[in-house]
Every structure is written in C-alpha cells, then in structure tokens.
Write a protein that binds this DNA or RNA. Structure first.
Lengths: 150, 150
DNA sequence: ATCCTTACCGCGAATAGTAGCAATAGCGTG
DNA sequence: CACGCTATTGCTACTATTCGCGGTAAGGAT
C-alpha cells in the first residue's frame, strides 16, 4: 500500500532512482486527481499549482514511466493511443474493458485472467503483466447498435 | 478465407466501401510482404513498385484501418506505439505475447482466452475481440535477466 | 454511356509520445 | 558540510498516427 509520501520516497530511492521536486509535484498532482489520468492532465494539474516551478512535458512522461516501472503506478493505453495512469494499489485488482466502438472503458475483475497467466507461464514461460491488461471488444450498448443496424 | 482478390473486392463493395486503385496496390503489397508489417513498411512496398502512382502515407493508414474494420486484416499495437497488420485468416487463430522489456513478440494460441471471453460476456455483456489481443509481460529471457540482476 | 451520390484521396497541420544531449541537482560518502 | 557520480531535467527534433478540408473518382441507377 504505497499511498503515502514516505513509503514512496523510500521505494524510489531504494531502486536507485531520485526523488526530485518534479516527481514530488507530480505525485502531489496525482493525489489531487481522481481515478486515472493522462500524462497531459497530470501536466496541467502540476502547472495549475502556482507554487510549482515550470516543468517540461517530457519530464512528466518520463516520471510517469519510471513510477510505472517500479509498480507505484499502472499504465494502460486506451483506444486513441492515449496512455492513462493510476495508483497501482487503488482498490481491488481490476482490468479494463475497452470498447473499440465508443471508446468507453469499464473496470472489472476477471477471474479467468489468472488461468490465462498460468497457461502462458506453463506453456510459454511468459510472465503476463495483468496490471497492464486492457481488453478490447464491444460493450453491450455498441453490440446492440451493431445488430440493430444489420 | 478471404485471401484472394475477388472475394476481398466483393467484401469491400458489400460493406458500402470502394475498391480504389490505392487499396488494390496496398493489398498487392500485403500479398508480397511476409507475416505482419507496419503501415510504414506497406507504404514503402507500394512506393517500390514503379508501376504504382504516388500515394500519400495517410491513405495507407486509412486503408489499413478500413480493412481491419471489416475483418480482412487484424491490427495490433506493439510496444513502441507501432501498429502492425496481418491477414486475419492467416493460419490458426493466435495471440501475441509482447515482452515489455525487450519488445519481442511471440505468436501463440491460448486456450484460456476462450474462458476469458465467456466470462466477460456472461458477467459484463462485453464481446471481447480476441483477434486484437496483445498480452504484455516478460518473456523467459528477460525474466532470467531480471532475477539474475537482483 | 452518363449522371449523381458520397466514399476516398492528397495535402498539410495537429497530437501523443520518444530520443539525444548538455546542464543540473539528488544523495551516498568522507 | 563539501565532493563526485550519475540519474534526471529541459530543450528541441523526430516518429507514428490522426484529422479536416476541398477536390476526385467509384460504382449503382438511368
């Protein structure tokens, strides 16, 4: 449960990384923002706070990447090629159902992903990263519309 | 098995789309290219053929998108944000194991994805698109390297 | 063969994100 | 507390892909 500043700071330093003021400000912004946010939204939130110094957008991308690599955040790429981030430990483990038609995403827990990970490990020695699992398809509404149209 | 010109042409017209010379040239290029290719590679292959007129890159992107939307091709986005396309009916149904560390992809068939699709349909009325299923994680080699480093 | 609707094309600009590089600043050490 | 190593920052340039727009041309109907 690395939701508090001290734990995160320790985790960052333990991995040989550094806790810069930019990363601190990004983490603060993430605390303020709800649910999952895009790099652009996080950048905007950092800029909004007048106490913060200016920051380059690329810094936000790199910081989010680093935080995701250490498992503090999880990243997933939605339809339009936009990546969204959220706290890794937020709530129960969940996955994203991403509708390819309307672009909506739903968060659900899927038990059979465990079996999938087991199969990939057994048959292909591949360690599936379930946190990054975005499942594409059609949501209920878009399925109805598609059949109605035919 | 829409691998021959006549069937594809019919399928395109049946969906209210048009078979333009650009699309014909793109399909020819896809026949020449092996396995899966990126939009950029397909564009290059079209340009190579001196009989072809010039074509805009955006045309390739849009044509591939349309062909994927009608199920003639399948698209999947690999690590670096590059989308690759391949014939939908090529060989047995397979999925992509994408290593987040080295970027390699392996094609495998995973039985448990059927159970996943069933669970999503039953519990969330969500129709999973198994063709676009890219599974991220760590390949065997990168797992070894990661544990060796610790 | 001609007409008409509208899907598609080429172009150029916009967007999300990455890469390279010199300058800066964490932070473990003495 | 000063020192040095190197992770990180801020540029800027670049890549992959999308979008809007005015003009072109498929292809069904006459």
């Amino acid at each position: 449960m690395p939701h508090d500043e001290a734990n995160i700071a320790q985790a960052i330093r333990a991995s040989g990384r550094r806790l810069t003021i930019q990363r601190t400000q990004i983490l603060e912004a993430l605390h303020r923002l709800p649910g999952h946010s895009t790099a652009e939204q996080i950048y905007a939130a950092v800029c909004e706070d007048s106490r913060n110094a200016e920051m380059a957008v690329s810094t936000v991308y790199r910081a989010l990447d680093a935080l995701a690599a250490m498992g503090i955040l999880t990243a997933f790429a939605d339809n339009g090629g936009v990546t969204t981030y959220e706290w890794a430990a937020a709530g129960a483990p969940h996955h994203h159902l991403l509708c390819e038609c309307c672009g909506d995403t739903a968060e659900v827990a899927l038990a059979s992903l465990g079996a999938l990970a087991a199969e990939a490990a057994r048959d292909h020695r591949f360690a599936v990263d379930l946190r990054h699992m975005a499942i594409r398809g059609l949501c209920a509404r878009c399925q109805r519309e598609r059949t109605a149209r035919a």
